[in-house]
Design a protein around this nucleic acid. Structure first.
Length: 1060
RNA sequence: GGGCCCGUAGCAUAGCUGGUGGUGCACCCGGCUGAUAACCGGGAGGUCGUGCGUUCGAAUCGCAUCGGGCCCA
């Protein structure tokens, strides 16, 4: 053990600890230490390798690290690797920006091979940056050997899964309406669509009914460009529709509109008058045929037989009739499938109309809106604009379109029931994350479109025969090499695109052009991280994961993608327990975003306060599953807490070093707390108490950890450090540290402090691993493990937990607070002793506590006596006050007389009489409890304050003896302060002189008893106390001389180091 | 529009199987001073988002509504 002089400087401390971990290879050694323990398989949710980590990413990894460190200390053999998600459109878009590309054509011209190399470089570079950042946060995951979605063996894991899907008939090629980004020219997942407001046309259009003169169905749309693809109109069979004769500018026409919407629609179309001709149910309209108002401009439209169909999703908004284009809408598509409608989609991958769109060919769809509207001519009933939420590509922010395309699907809807059953088997923290949130999401989920028409991703391993159309799904690289006879250097595009497999029919099979949705990459992480299918052994032993934890946004993300892929491949969930954590928000509870300028980065926090403060803060601020509202003040509070921990730790060290204290070791030179266990019954109460507290702490934290109540654990730790250790125990134990001679009391104090710090650092290790390591490193014995992270988690020692003592101490602390309050009211400083302190209570617990811990109470109260009185204390006087509301009616005329009698009576005696007999007599009048109230009247010099279940009375009246001690204490304190100014060592001796300008006070403290006391306390070899007239005795120069005003008495004090 | 979560003093947070609202920070006043760019005590500060309901009684239960978050449409 060494003395520690420096104050808590986290950055320096943490750099030192991390250097040491690196030099000693501590992480690997901790892992090795536990390799025979019970396996605990953890899968790291892979962050995407773009840019830097943000607060949420840091929080995520900090939770993981704290949990895993805890499990390691509990003896678990943690199976883990860090992981990274490295494919996908975001990186393609970044690289496109770097290269100045605007379309897929630019990429093709540049060369796919060169392009994906750029993507690879980008991903790997950023992965390394992020790994360094995570390491700096003290995250112990395997960053030297992370799983990477771009590695050949990882790609194989995905291929293998999709092969299984195909074998089970869950892989399907289909024409589906998908979210389509016209810039990226690819389908994008629902989860990749971002919504924000967009202003669009809002038009009402008349569709002419076939065979009726001048009669129309009125529909509404915000996407005029989808009208060339219209094939039907949907009505709700539950609604009533009106056939209306409407007049405008002398013309008449017949319109069909939902009955309740007639007024508003006609107003919109500026009709002057109308008559309802008939009202029919929606069913009556079904089958009605009509023509496209664009028939003359889109040739295909003249061939389509348009008709009215029913759809119950039609709402009573706008016109109550909905335009259906199965090529451009998901609901439309489903209606189309049901009704056998044609799926017409005259839009290409770049969002431009194809020649099939006739007059609109080659136009970009959103640009064509105006032309479509113009072309409608008289069929346009009204035109407005609308601002509504519209979807955009999450990467390039282009408004998406819906487009019917050929895609590959995983038939998630077919395995919905098994997925729901699996969710119920998983242990969710909190419970509702699974039972409500995730359950509902999966219940409402659709088939998963897994194909993308891009470059930087896992190629879909489907080879299709150009001759016969048969397809085959490849599961491994080896299988591909065998079947193609070609060596596979890199399973990425464009290299795999060139591989040809001979088809049994004699034709050639070529790979389909698509790559996987990047969500499918991470979906296979649970077995990919184990190297499956290449490696089987680890998979058989560890899979599925014991635990994963990610943010609530991953409900639809990684929780879902993994469950889907795993249910397809193995028919079960890939994880046994899931902790869903919240989102990191700013102090106002708003999302952190660059445009708002409210982003707080982990680096900022670390630069100011260090890693441990950040870690402890995010684990402490709220429950893991609630959103984190970042708050600098709270960060400072945590910094202060750790600073206090540091001060508590270093305060006893100088004394221990001075005394060459060594904690009692066990055989083998390691420490296990047996001294405290063996001597507990002889140790002072406060030692037994803090030992009990730290064991209670171990017990509650273990319980909370089991439920991942990380906030409760960190709060309990912080509270222990501040309340129990710093504000109470250290205050109590200090005098024992200062004892000169060896004594059991001092030994117990050292052993207790040591015990508490050893247990506390172990409990802190998962949450604040650096400061715990630093403190442990100084305290550990030669036989102890080198790192605090190699220790076993401290189990609560039930024999050392004393609930009664803990309760009693709570009472004494309440007493202590009350004494301070009462003294403040009586203006008597704590330094000045008082004669008597009385606690009035009816509580046995209070009585027992103050009896058992009387020495402590005396000490804390700085009182000659502390005693408990049950019932009433005889020194309390009572003042009787008449209650006129009762006296008036009863005594009538004599009321004023009774009032005067009561006021003049001895209230204390009156109260006693009434309590004893229920009544008292005053000058012949019978007085009962009704007629009088009593106010407490404290004797001169007594002050009261409430405490737990009791009231404390402090008598601050001075006597010469008390005064002498008070002044002596004042002198001691001032000399100590002067010692400090001279920067003397704790064991230096001094010579001192005190010149007091007050005869009485001088004689009080000049008494031998107090002079000795002062000299002893301040280590004075020689001390003079005398009365002066305020004249400085010039013949005695001291190293330091000061004038003091002590409670109005002038004193001159001079001190020097002895022998100088 | 739908699902889930959250909404408590200036800020953050506890209480949420119903019984007169705790804690920390900040603020004001006082104390302490052999942990000192620390520490302790006291005070002020709340219609527990809003409204309605259930109940003898609601921050706590129900319904509605507003605001924030994540997700879905």
């Amino acid at each position: 053990m060494k003395e520690v002089t420096g104050s808590y400087s986290p950055r320096k401390l943490e750099a030192g600890v991390q250097d040491n971990w690196k030099r000693e290879n501590t992480y690997a050694r901790v892992q090795a230490l536990r390799q025979d323990g019970k396996a605990f398989f953890f899968v790291d949710g892979p962050p995407y390798t773009t840019g830097h980590i943000h607060l949420g990413t840091a929080w995520n990894k900090i939770i993981k690290d704290a949990v895993l460190r805890y499990h390691r200390m509990r003896g678990a053999n943690i199976i883990e690797r860090a992981g990274y998600d490295m494919h996908g459109l975001p990186i393609e878009v970044k690289v496109e920006h770097q290269l100045g590309f605007t379309s897929k054509k630019d990429i093709e011209d540049y060369g796919i091979a060169a392009f994906i190399e750029q993507c690879r470089t980008f991903a790997v570079t950023h992965m390394e940056i992020m790994s360094d950042q995570f390491r700096q946060l003290g995250i112990w995951l395997d960053f030297d050997n992370p799983y990477q979605t771009i590695k050949e063996e990882y790609i194989e894991s995905a291929w293998w899964a999709i092969q299984r899907a195909d074998e089970r008939g869950l892989l399907e090629r289909g024409h589906r309406v998908v979210n389509w980004c016209p810039r990226c020219e690819t389908a994008i997942a629902d989860s990749e669509v971002e919504y924000w407001d967009e202003t669009d046309p809002s038009i009402f259009v008349k569709f002419p009914i076939t065979g009726r003169e001048n009669e129309y169905l009125v529909i509404w749309t915000t996407t005029p460009w989808t009208l060339p693809a219209n094939v039907a109109v949907a009505v709700n069979s539950a609604f009533t529709y009106a056939r209306v004769r409407a007049k405008k500018d002398g013309n008449e026409e017949i319109l069909w509109i939902a009955d309740e919407l007639v007024e508003s629609v006609l107003k919109m179309g500026r009709y002057q008058d109308y008559t309802v001709l008939e009202r029919v149910g929606g069913n009556s309209l079904i089958g009605t045929e009509y023509a496209s108002p664009l028939a003359g401009h889109v040739p295909r439209q003249t061939e389509i037989r348009h008709r009215v169909v029913a759809a119950d999703y039609v709402t009573l908004e706008n016109t109550g009739l909905v335009h259906i284009a199965p090529g451009h809408g998901w609901d439309d598509y489903l209606v189309g499938i049901r009704e056998g409608l044609e799926v017409f989609c005259p839009v290409d991958s770049g969002g431009c109309f194809t020649p099939e769109a006739g007059a609109f060919a080659d136009m970009y769809v959103r640009d064509a809106n105006d032309l479509v509207i113009d072309t409608l001519g008289g069929y346009l009933l009204a035109r407005r604009t609308i601002t509504h939420r519209y979807g955009h590509c999450w990467r390039c922010k282009t408004p998406i379109i819906y487009r019917a395309t050929a895609q590959w699907f995983l038939k998630a809807t077919e395995i919905r029931e098994p997925m729901l059953a699996e969710i119920a088997k998983v242990k969710w923290y909190p419970e509702w994350a699974g039972s409500a949130r995730f359950h509902d999401f999966v219940r409402d989920s659709r088939d998963w479109c897994i194909s993308r028409q891009r470059y930087w991703g896992i190629p879909i391993p489907i080879w299709q025969c150009e001759e016969c159309g048969e397809h085959t799904v490849i599961g491994t690289v080896a299988e591909l090499e065998e079947r193609s006879g070609t060596e596979v250097a890199d399973p990425h595009r464009p290299y795999v695109d060139e591989i040809v497999i001979p088809c049994p029919c004699g034709g050639e099979m070529r790979r389909v052009a698509d790559i996987f949705d990047v969500w499918f990459d991470s979906a296979v992480a649970s077995w990919a991280t184990l190297g499956f299918p290449r490696e089987r052994e680890a998979f058989d032993r560890y899979w599925p994961a014991d635990f994963i934890t990610e943010g609530q946004d991953q409900t639809r993300g990684w929780f879902y993608s993994q469950l889907g892929a795993s249910t397809v491949a193995f028919g079960r969930a890939p994880y046994k327990s899931v902790l869903m954590h919240g989102f990191a928000l700013d102090a106002e509870g708003r999302k952190m975003s660059k445009s708002f300028g409210n982003v707080v980065t982990p680096e900022e926090v670390v630069n100011q306060f260090g890693v441990d403060v950040l870690r402890f803060y995010v684990l402490w601020a709220n429950a893991p599953w609630d959103d984190l509202k970042f708050n600098w003040d709270s960060v400072k509070t945590i910094h202060r807490t750790l600073n206090i921990l540091w001060n508590v730790y270093r305060f006893p060290l100088p004394y221990m070093v001075l005394d060459s204290f060594e904690p009692a070791p066990e055989a083998g030179g390691l420490w296990d707390g047996s001294f405290v266990r063996g001597n507990i019954n002889d140790m002072p109460k406060e030692d037994r108490w803090i030992v009990s507290r730290v064991n209670s702490l171990a017990r509650t934290t273990a319980g909370d950890m089991r439920e991942y109540q990380l906030h409760k654990v960190t709060r309990a730790l912080a509270s222990f450090i501040l309340e129990d250790l710093s504000r109470w125990y250290v205050q109590l134990v200090r005098p024992r540290m200062w004892l000169e001679e060896d004594s059991p009391e001092k030994r117990y104090a050292y052993e207790t402090v040591y015990y508490v710090m050893r247990r506390l650092t172990a409990l802190l290790a998962p949450f604040a691993p650096h400061i715990a390591e630093e403190i442990y490193g100084n305290l550990r014995l030669d036989g102890d493990p080198e790192s605090v992270h190699m220790l076993d988690w401290p189990e609560a020692d039930d024999l050392l937990i004393a609930p009664d003592l803990e309760n009693a101490m709570e009472i004494v602390r309440s007493f202590d607070d009350a004494v301070a309050t009462a003294r403040q009211a009586g203006r008597r400083k704590l330094r000045w002793p008082v004669s008597e302190t009385v606690v009035v209570t009816g509580s046995d617990e209070v009585n027992t506590a103050l009896e058992d811990l009387n020495d402590l109470a005396l000490n804390r109260a700085n009182s000659r006596t502390v005693r408990v009185v049950t019932g009433t204390w005889d020194r309390i006087l009572w003042q009787a006050e008449p209650v006129m509301r009762a006296i008036g009616p009863e005594f009538g005329r004599d009321g004023p007389k009774v009032k005067a009698l009561i006021e003049q009576a001895d209230g204390t005696a009156l109260k006693a009489a009434i309590e004893r007999e229920g009544k008292a007599e005053l000058d012949g009048y019978e007085i009962t409890a009704r007629h009088v109230t009593f106010a407490e009247s404290l004797p001169e010099g007594v002050f009261a304050a409430p405490m737990k279940d009791a009231t404390v009375y402090v008598d601050v009246t001075l006597t010469p003896a008390l005064e002498a001690e008070g002044y002596a204490r004042e002198v001691i304190r001032r000399i100590q302060e002067m010692r400090r100014q001279l920067d003397l060592n704790v064991d230096d001796f001094i010579v001192a002189a005190v010149d007091v300008a007050d005869e009485r006070v001088a004689s009080l403290i000049a008494k031998e008893e107090w002079q000795k006391e002062i000299a002893g306390e301040v280590r004075a070899a020689a001390l003079t106390v005398r009365r002066t007239d305020g004249e400085r005795p010039a013949e005695e120069p001291f190293a330091l001389e000061k004038d003091w005003d002590v409670e109005g008495v002038q004193m001159q004090i001079g001190i020097s180091r002895a022998g100088e």
